[in-house]
């Protein structure tokens, strides 16, 4: 039933038969899938299964060894990162990659790079319009900081924030590029329970208020099952299952590969997910 509701939306991102080899190592082996506009897709799987490799390929960090990626119906296979960013794909990193020596606000300003137009020559000569654009950028960047509750730390060095704040700042930086799709790579890693709950609420807000499409890699099953509408399971470079959180939690193959018997029995109750949807 949910599948029907979801498939009515158009596909924003698709990947077909994507493989990635590092020398003899097969990181991804013919993975296909699609992401529908406005949905939250969860990706789970054991460590080293190829989840982050998939994000790296979608965001242009690596070219796939085989296969095609399409964004909004146009092929983006092999495009460099910055071009893919300009086309509306933003992401965060499992091991946070902030500009630690720059201020919190400046991090968001860099995230807004693709939304500004000041040229190098224009900036050097401080042509008219540059100052106006710069102050407008600052206002907008502050608004993104407000969204994640970090505007009071705007002038602090990014490296001085706590892990939880850094994760939020990385999301704010990604949002500042006004993407249509955002890839979150283990955003709850290193967060405490309270922070994780707040993050879950924020992810839902991003979907509803910013009308974003979200792909989420997460090991925190409670968070993932709460926010994701569909879940894709990757194991050893292969997609082994795809479906609603309820279907995934009941899938024997997923249980043996990743979730384990214990979680399937004691994990978040399936009903709560159903109720929310």
């Amino acid at each position: 039933m949910h599948d029907c509701a979801v498939t009515e939306n158009e596909i924003v991102l698709g990947f077909a038969e994507v493989s990635k080899f590092f020398g003899g190592l097969v990181a991804l082996d013919g993975v296909s899938g699609e992401v529908f506009g406005g949905e939250i897709l969860g990706i789970i799987g054991p460590n080293g299964a190829g989840k982050t490799t998939l994000f790296n390929i979608i965001s242009g960090v690596f070219s796939p060894s085989k296969g095609e990626i399409g964004l909004g119906g146009r092929p983006i296979t092999g495009l460099p990162c910055h071009k893919i960013a300009h086309l509306g794909v933003a992401r965060t990193f499992q091991n946070i990659r902030l500009f630690r020596e720059m201020s919190v606000l400046e991090n968001v300003l860099v995230g807004r790079h693709s939304q500004a137009s000041a040229s190098l020559i224009g900036s050097v000569l401080r042509l008219p319009g540059i100052r106006a654009e710069e102050s407008q950028l600052r206002q907008e960047a502050l608004a993104y900081l407000d969204m994640v509750g970090l505007s009071e730390r705007a002038e602090a060095k990014a490296g001085s924030l706590t892990t939880g704040q850094q994760r939020l700042l990385e999301i704010a930086r990604a949002l500042a590029g006004e993407p249509q799709i955002i890839l979150l790579d283990e955003p709850a890693a290193g967060l405490n329970t309270r922070e994780t709950e707040a993050l879950g609420e924020f992810i839902l807000r991003m979907q509803q208020e910013l009308e974003l499409t979200i792909v989420l890699i997460e090991h925190d099953m409670r968070l993932l099952m709460e926010v994701a509408e569909r879940v894709m399971v990757i194991d050893r470079g292969h997609k082994i299952a795809e479906g609603t959180p309820a279907q995934i939690q009941a899938d024997p193959q997923v249980i043996s590969a990743y979730l384990g018997e214990e979680f399937a029995a004691n994990g978040p109750p399936v009903q709560s997910t159903e109720e929310r949807l």
Binding site: H82, A85, H86, R97, S114, A174, G177
Partner: peptide, 10 residues
């Protein structure tokens, strides 16, 4: 600071 993160920002 990070070429990768900068590229991801566009």
């Amino acid at each position: 600071e990070s070429e990768l993160a900068a590229a991801i920002c566009g």
